[in-house]
Computed example of a mutant assay.
Amino acid sequence: MHPCERVGIDFVETAPHRYANSVELAVTPEQLFEVLADADAWPRWASVITKVVWTTPEPRGTGTRRTVTMRGGLVGDEEFLAWEPPRMMSFRFNEASTRTVKAFAERYDVVATPTGCRLTWTLALDVRGPSRLGMPLGKPVMNSVFRRFLRNLRTYTDERFA
């Protein structure tokens, strides 16, 4: 594992590479947080994720840790910067299995709507090495992938809470 910069929650607004996408869900904010707290749910909607393991005991909160394993062998040791159900959560990578990841953080903002809730997911990162050159060109593809994950989340929550 390689150390990543210990960025704060503000990194999702200032990172060199940011991806923000939203989805309308037909579930309550509380139900959405039930899904976000469920380690087994993540691989069901974010297909890049193969395994999530909470490494600190409940209750969840700021400072909670987990390990996320992704396709391609990427592993991230995450620490939650905020855990404020049912409206917001944010985490960063403290370490990653690749040296390419310089800094990484995500923020999930949830707003209640008349038909459920709206989730805005912001992923922010900085990278080292040659990967820096291709990041701007890859933004449309990355946003497309993240929008697909959010559609998958909508399908998953529709089925789980039908």
Rank of each mutant, 00 (worst) to 15 (best):
M1D: 07
C4I: 01
E5Q: 13
R6A: 15
V12K: 05
E13F: 06
P16R: 14
H17E: 11
N21K: 10
E24I: 04
A26C: 11
A26E: 09
V27M: 04
T28Y: 02
P29L: 04
P29E: 00
E30S: 14
Q31M: 07
Q31E: 15
L36C: 08
D38N: 07
D38G: 07
D40E: 15
P43F: 03
W45Q: 05
W45I: 04
A46V: 08
A46P: 00
V48A: 14
I49F: 09
W54K: 07
T55C: 06
T56E: 06
T62V: 14
T62Y: 08
G63H: 09
G63P: 08
G63I: 10
T64H: 09
R65W: 00
R65G: 05
T69I: 01
M70N: 09
G72W: 01
G72K: 06
V75I: 15
D77E: 14
E79N: 05
E79P: 03
E79T: 13
A82I: 02
P85C: 10
P86R: 09
M88S: 15
F93M: 13
F93Y: 10
N94K: 12
N94S: 15
N94Y: 01
N94W: 00
E95H: 12
A96D: 01
S97H: 02
S97G: 11
K102M: 10
A103C: 08
F104V: 06
F104C: 09
F104Y: 14
R107E: 07
V110L: 01
V111Q: 13
T113Y: 03
P114V: 08
T115F: 00
T115E: 15
T115C: 02
G116L: 05
C117K: 02
P130S: 12
P130R: 11
S131W: 11
S131P: 00
P136R: 12
P136E: 11
G138K: 08
K139W: 02
M142N: 12
N143D: 15
N143P: 02
F146G: 04
R147F: 02
R148S: 13
L150S: 10
R151A: 13
N152L: 06
R154I: 00
E159M: 05
E159I: 03
R160E: 08
A162D: 12
A162R: 15
